[in-house]
Design a protein around this nucleic acid. Structure first.
Lengths: 206, 206, 206, 206
DNA sequence: AATGAATGAGCCTTCATTCAT
DNA sequence: CATGAATGAAGGCTCATTCAT
């Protein structure tokens, strides 16, 4: 309808949306620029007016992605009214588990997981722009919990693994390793169970 | 000229070793069969005497991998003399964390992570041959712990995420997302801290 | 540098011309797409903008050929002013003998002869698009001759063999089985002699 | 049973039999030495103990073939008791039509037709060893007929085309251009009709 | 800004031929 | 004689990128 309106400013983003979709389906190497262009409603050549190369698109994609998920998590924590570390952690994990259960949201992190090996630059970018911030977020949360006397003072590297790991595992089990025959548990159930373990452990409280 | 030696029995395994190395470096799509052949000490054509195609090599690689890590873990658990669920879980996580800290060992699972999207068959294979067995292993361990009165009766899907996730996270942080400037914590420290959290949680025991 | 000229409409035909030339020289299997492209003044890759594969080019070639020779023969017969079966047959055979004496014209049918075994689709195509029409043409001519009382009512399958066969034999003897030392008889002589035999037989009229 | 007996003298012929079969199915270029070897009951390498190359096998095949069909035709004519040119020609054409209707017999000439373009040596060989003899045979027959006053004195080049052509056409129509749905006329019918035309022409005798 | 024809490098795969046994 | 593992050259096809329009 209103498609006749030119909005070249939006083009790069449209292309990146298309790229993410295509990369997710076929991987970076298997993705054809022509397919990305087609999905973005452009010709193959036009893509090169906005991006130098296919690899540059991947990097731009990762750069753009950086703000999204962690940004949302940071906002969530920051806007938490009462500063209760336990509640906040529970909320954070639940939020992330729910988000990552959505294949559309998880497409970007999955892409990073898949391509970081091959493109160290991607790995470094993600490490600095996403992982470092996640580590910070958890560190502050931990500080708070410790100050409140509810959290043990856990090594931040380990805390990061303990909190992010189950979420990654859930994401992978929900997508690439999912069995179409038996769908996995609902995100809320997972989030609940996961926070229980992270907070209380698997042992019966003695 | 020292070529033309005949040791056909060992060839497939030699080729797969070379393939794993090359795939890990460049990814499946970026790997050249010629490089794999060279690394295995063969000519390009000879590879095709043992494998139908490059993709077939990838599948064979994943099949072979299946037995290795999980097999070792299963053996570890099975040969545990006294059946103490807590100790066994601690030992299992420690073993896995140590194993996955070795880039040579983790090369194969990382490859699977990278290629499972693009080759659903790989994902399915790994799910059935590795993940399902890991789930079984944990389920039995959980049964034991529950019977002994030390474990809470946790949903197995969640237990799987809670135990495997941190290990995956550790593997990723040690390799693709590692910062050459600051090396991560030693595997034993990680294993210790991780099991503490998995067993006791991050909360101060009330 | 004079490349990059655009005349896409003519391209498929140019490529097919080049393909016919190269196929004729080296056979289908021996022909390199790169050579065809070079002869058509294109790069290897450009050929694939117009044809899916080398085999597809061969099929397109045969399809295109279909209309040419038989079409000309049909036109010749159709535009024959007075409908005299004997004269028309004589003219038809003479026309075909002359045409098939030209290596450029005979290149296509020779290609079909050479490749029909290996590509049954080619054989079927030629049978339906060329041979069937030739059979029709002769059948109508025979009908006319019979109606005029000058032709015996001959089985059309046999008539086809009796008329087309000598032309094929002539084509083969003029090309693949030709002796460079002693060139064969001129097409007009052959056409004359051939029609004499087809019309009157080798026997002295009793 | 008696297969244990070694008969290396027979090997070349066995290989050529296998080669003819494989060449007929896939053409020379499409034939794999390994397939020929397998059909001959040998290993790939063993074939090279008997033939220098694949092309050499093709040439040997054509050389061997040369004697077969024409040899039989020559014998047929030579052993004809009463020297009646008309009867002999009729018998000759009938014999050839019947022979060439058998796909096994026609496999070799069809192979020559298909490959002569690509291998001029094959064309030359066939021309000298087969076609020349056929021309001779017909020439002598024609001489006889003329001497007996029954044959017109026809140019031998044209006679060759008039006699051999319909047989070739019949062979092609029976094999590569055959329609599986409607089988062609029986060889005897064809032979009869063909000789009628060759002898008497298509015209009603005036 | 956009197009899409064209390029050309690159790689998987096949297979005739060789050779150590 | 025979084997079959190994070689290596060759070619079809793809696709990121360029460029004339």
């Amino acid at each position: 309808m209103a498609r006749r309106v030119r909005r070249p400013e939006a083009r790069p983003d449209e292309i990146l949306d298309a790229a993410l979709a295509v990369f997710s389906e076929t991987g970076f190497a298997g993705a054809r620029v022509e397919d990305i262009a087609a999905r973005a409603g452009l010709s193959k050549g036009a893509v090169y007016l906005y991006f130098e190369s296919k690899e540059e698109m991947l990097k731009a994609l990762v750069r753009r992605l950086a703000d999204r998920v962690v940004g949302a998590a940071e906002t969530l924590v920051a806007t938490q009214p009462q500063a209760d570390a336990e509640k906040t952690l529970r909320m954070l994990v639940t939020f992330m588990a729910t988000q990552l259960s959505d294949p559309k949201v998880s497409a970007a992190p999955r892409l990073v997981l898949a391509e970081a090996q091959r493109f160290p630059e991607i790995g470094a970018l993600y490490r600095d722009a996403v992982i470092a911030r996640g580590r910070q977020l958890l560190a502050r949360l931990c500080d708070l919990g410790v100050a409140q006397g509810t959290f043990r003072n856990i090594d931040r590297e380990i805390l990061l693994r303990a909190c992010a790991g189950p979420l990654i595992a859930h994401m992978l089990l929900s997508t690439v390793f999912s069995d179409p025959a038996k769908p996995g548990p609902a995100p809320e159930i997972v989030a609940q169970g996961l926070t229980d373990i992270i907070l209380h452990g698997v042992l019966v409280q003695s």
